[in-house]
Every structure is written in structure tokens, then in C-alpha cells.
Design a protein around this nucleic acid. Sequence first.
DNA 1: CGTACTACCGTGATCGGTGACGGTCACGCA
DNA 2: TGCGTGACCGTCACCGATCACGGTAGTACG
Lengths: 343, 343
Amino acid sequence: MRVDIREVARRSGVSMATVSRALNGRPDVSDVTRSRIEEVARELGYTANQQARALVRRRSDMVGLIWETAYIGSKGRQPFLQDLLVGLKMALADTGYHLMLLSPQTAANGVNAFVQAAMQHGLDGVVLMGVNEHLPAVEALISSGRPCVGLDLQVTGPRASYVTSNNVTGAEAAIHHLVALGHERIATVTGNMPLIAAVDRLAGYRNAMAEAGLDIPEGYEQEGDFFIESGHESMQALLALDNPPTAVFAGGDTMAIGAMQAIADAGLTVPGDISVVGYDDIDHAAIVRPGLTTISQDYLAIGQAAVRLLTQIMDDEDHEPQPQVLPGRLIVRASTGPVRPAT
Amino acid sequence: MRVDIREVARRSGVSMATVSRALNGRPDVSDVTRSRIEEVARELGYTANQQARALVRRRSDMVGLIWETAYIGSKGRQPFLQDLLVGLKMALADTGYHLMLLSPQTAANGVNAFVQAAMQHGLDGVVLMGVNEHLPAVEALISSGRPCVGLDLQVTGPRASYVTSNNVTGAEAAIHHLVALGHERIATVTGNMPLIAAVDRLAGYRNAMAEAGLDIPEGYEQEGDFFIESGHESMQALLALDNPPTAVFAGGDTMAIGAMQAIADAGLTVPGDISVVGYDDIDHAAIVRPGLTTISQDYLAIGQAAVRLLTQIMDDEDHEPQPQVLPGRLIVRASTGPVRPAT
DNA sequence: CGTACTACCGTGATCGGTGACGGTCACGCA
DNA sequence: TGCGTGACCGTCACCGATCACGGTAGTACG
């Protein structure tokens, strides 16, 4: 029993087309007619049916979101994905686009669900986060030519691009901070290497170490997988070295927390014996004791950048999309301190 | 350039209606025709346009999700909402319904965005989580007669119901656990009282205390607001009492963590001096040291129950919806221990 | 052989909008 | 007066599907 445009047209004594024009803010409607129509529409509580609208306009004003909370497998949760989602949602709320949540499952008929859902619902664009960018499904989506934006994952194509924080400079900032505190024996725990965030953060670590004239002893680069256990294990390995580090840069907060626990388990203190820096500034970072020094990504800014980028790609047919790289920001908390004086 | 049903019809030498029938599994199509059509559809990669479909069928196969990460205001994040979202998403993935994310902002024309989006997109149902159930917007949505299900928030109406964990028995289990460890001076920190979860957990606390024959001294019931600072402050208030408790039940993990920090700040240990139990089993609970004993909600089960409930309401025009109450489960970690022997 | 019934399929209306196109009318100007 | 112009609005053909209805052919049955 919803009121439709025909009803509005009848009650205001004009044709459906005029109602459509008036309500869509098109110019060729007289002011008095327009306001009469608006009045009637308000009274009747009329709002346009989006399916019908989308059908004829060939655009849905909807974007899809592929949102996975765990990388391949599901060993645990990546809490920063919630922040990313919130950032995106807030940024999107201003644009008039709606958001549809897509699950990365394959549909029954074999065609991948990503592409299928995007097609079936006529999604104007898709945002990806938390999925592996090398998944065939993702590649199929990209190459389908639909506008895509990756958040913290590197997708590229004629109508695809990504937003990420600058993992290289972020990592460099972390190391600079430690160097400024007098640390020279600085190790790192990386994420799993196929992921661009892990690679770039490692690169930043190496850059900054070289720049500071510090060398990286054998075993100072431990590869983890972004989950807490790997931080714990990697830290244990570092502690077992002949020359254990006085500071550790973990390429993810969860791993940093695991490392802090390993340090505590070994009877050492943070930052008294070893300083720890993380990356991401997840909620946990502020809660954990001692508070974790980390590199913060501004999720709101990332969300806004993603929305801006996506709308550009969607609006400009042949807009050459530029990846957006936002700077990370060092948040100093209690997990880092001056190097312990040599005994 | 998408292939439509007309194209499929032409290539398989039948009418559009027959294609529609065949692909929707309707009976009155001969087997040979059906398989020929399916063959053609597969070759062409045809999938039905959902907008057109929804338009004529008067159902969108889409449900809306109102998902707020912070209760009124935005003092912080409630991390268990991510888990709820994941649970819901997984449960929904099996049903063929898609999920649309709704933002609780008011639209320009004054009609509330909840109702408006639900109407405009013809959503078949709505799931609510993380919002205050007393918001006028929410009430408007409920009374619009659209099928609604609340997750961990109590909405009721002819076509609305909710799923929640049994906060009363969960809280009772927490207290039983503490009593079994020999505690007698047990305090509680509640969430903000308008929220049903806070009210019920307090009720469970009182029940179990009475059942155990323990009385609740003045000041043993502190009201917090589900955020970490309130846990911290409430714990300080409890420590300042003449007869401070030996155990604290916090009606939310974030508050429990705040309480643990306040205990540590006071130079006391958990659980040596004071045992702490939380509620929700958020990620933090496992990471924090000592690990937090807490009541776990099975988010997957909640998601499944919500989906089942919603589909029932949507399918049965006059189905009297029953609220689903799932049991919580006690997870014992390191934050609780036997009561300290009297000195 | 005529009729009834079943199985299968096509026709045309419809869902609720939008947009191209064309028509009317008042006005300005030669 | 005649004509061009622009502002405003209605008509009609879609968008891509579904569905009610009707038609046809083949079979069974009296």
C-alpha cells in the first residue's frame, strides 16, 4: 500500500513526469508547481522506489563491500577491520550511496558470488577489505571492469585502485622513534609476506635502519602472520639470540601484543628491558598495559579517501585512478622508552 | 551490455515467460526445454536483474542491518559488535538474502533514514544491533510493520522480536563460579541502566547472591556505561569502600578490563587480591593478562537464531514472533581464583 | 467421434519509475 | 500581425523481469 508517483501526480494535478522532474530537482519545472508537488509528496510521505529508479537509470546508487574479518583461513580476528568499516560507513553516509555487504562465497552455479552479486544488483562500485588481493574471485571482479577500491589491499586495473596508509614511511617513523631513544639493536616481526602491508613495513624498517647506520644482525627479521601467537613465538626466537634486541618493531599491533607477552613471560619488562612498537593502533593498543606505542592509521580519513576515489572512478568513465597513500602517525604510549644503559 | 532474459529467450527459441519459469524452477516446463534454456543461460552467463525482479515480485530478498559501533554518543567502540556482525553475515550467507548496511542518520526531509531506506529499497526485513532500542527512529521502524529482529536489544511488536543471550542466567553463572571459589564479598559494575543487557545482568547478580545467602552491602552495585573508563572509576569507588569486595562481576568485558587496571593501579593483583569476571568474551578478554574469566556469547549461534527468527517473521504473515534467548557460557581464564585467606 | 483434461507455452499487462520527444502558450521583436 | 524563442509540461516508450490468463496440442475416455 505504498504511495507511488502516480498517486502524487494525481493529487497535485500534473503528470508523473513532472513529479519526477520536480522531485529530482530538475530545472524545467515552475516554482509554484514544484512546491505544490513537494507539499503533496511530503503529506503523502512519498519516497521513490529505488528498484524502479535503478532499473531505468541504470545505476543503483549502491556500492558493494567485500568484508572479511580474517585473512585466508580464520585463525582469528583482525580488529582494525571494524574500524575500517566504521570509517567507510561514515564517509559513505554523506554521499547518498548505500552499502551492500557481500560474502566471498562461491554461488551454486559456479560463477563467483562477488561478480554475480555485483551484476545482479547493478552495484555501481565495490570496496574490498580484508580479503587476499590474489584470490581468483577478486581478480575476476577487477577484470569485470566494475569500479573497485581496495582498502589496505592493493588492487589495480583500469577502473580499480586502492587506498592504504603509507606503510613504508610509517615503519620508518617507528624506527626513527626508537633510534631517537638511543636504541641500536632493533629487530622486527613482520606480517605474512605476500601481503603488501607486511612487505612495505619491512621495507620501511630496512630503510630507516640503513639511514641510521645500524645493521641488521642475522635473525633480527622474524616473519609472523599478523596474529598474536606469531608475535609471541617470534619474540621468543629473538630473545634466544646471542645478542637479543633492545627494541622490537612489530608490523601489526596484535603481534606486538604477543611480543609483549613473551617478554613478560621471560621475566623482562616493557619498556625497561625491551621497547615495543606496533602498527595499526587497534583498540587493544590503548587498553593493554603498558600502552602500546604504535603507528596509527586514520580510519576515517581512509574511509573518506576510499569513497572519494570510488566516486571519481564511478563518475569519470576514463579516469585514470591514482592509488591514495595516506601517512601514518606515530602514537607514543608507554611501551617504548630510552635504551637501558649498558651494564 | 549485460545479457537479459530476452536474449536468452531468443537464443533458446522460447518466450521470455518460459525462460523465467525454467530458471525459477517452476513445474510447467518440459524437461528438454528446461535443460536447453539452462544450457543457453550458462553459456551466456545470464543472471537475473534483481531490481527488475524485486520490482514485480514485491520482495527484494534483501534485509537491512542497522549497525552502530557505539551506543548513543561515541565514546568508544564496542568490539563484540564485530563478532555479532560476522555471525549474522555467516548465517545469512546460506539463506539467499543479501544484507544492506543502514546508517542511523536522519535524512534531509525529516523522515527518518531507517524507515525511509527500508521503504525505498523494499527491504524484506531489518536487523538492528548496537542501537538504543528506545530511539524514536527505532520505534518508528518497528511500528511501520516491517519485520524486525533485534540483536542483543529488545524490540517487540507484531512483526518484531529479538535474539539475545540469557543475561540473567549468564550473570548467575558468573556469581556461582565466584561463590564456588569461596568468595562472599562480591560486587558488580553494571552497564548503563536503560539497556536491557545491563538490567538483566544485574538481576542475575542479585538472584545468585540471594540464592547463595550473601548480602549486597551498600556501594557494591556500581553503575557504569559499558566503556572502559567507567570500569576503572567504578573499581576505584569499590576499593575505597570500608569493606572492599574480594571479587567483582562486571557486566561487560571492557568494564572488567578497566576494573583490572584500577586494581593494578592500586598495587593489588588479579586474582591474588581480587577476582574479576566480565561478560561478552570479546577478543580482548583472551589477550589481556591475566586472561579474563567471562561469559561467552556464541555469536554464530546468535546470528543463526536471528536469521531464523527473521525469516519466520518474513514468511509467515501472522506468525507470533517469540524472542529467542540463548544461554551464555562461562569461560574460565586466569582472572578468577580462590578467595584470599583472611589475614 | 466428440469432449474433457492435462501439459506446456506464448501474449500482454504490470511493477514504479525516467527520459526523449513533442506540444502548448506567453512573450518579445520586427 | 507574424514568427521565433524559451519555459513548462504531457505522452509514450522503455528498463528487465514476473504472472495471470488464454491458447494449442495430445491423450484418455465415454
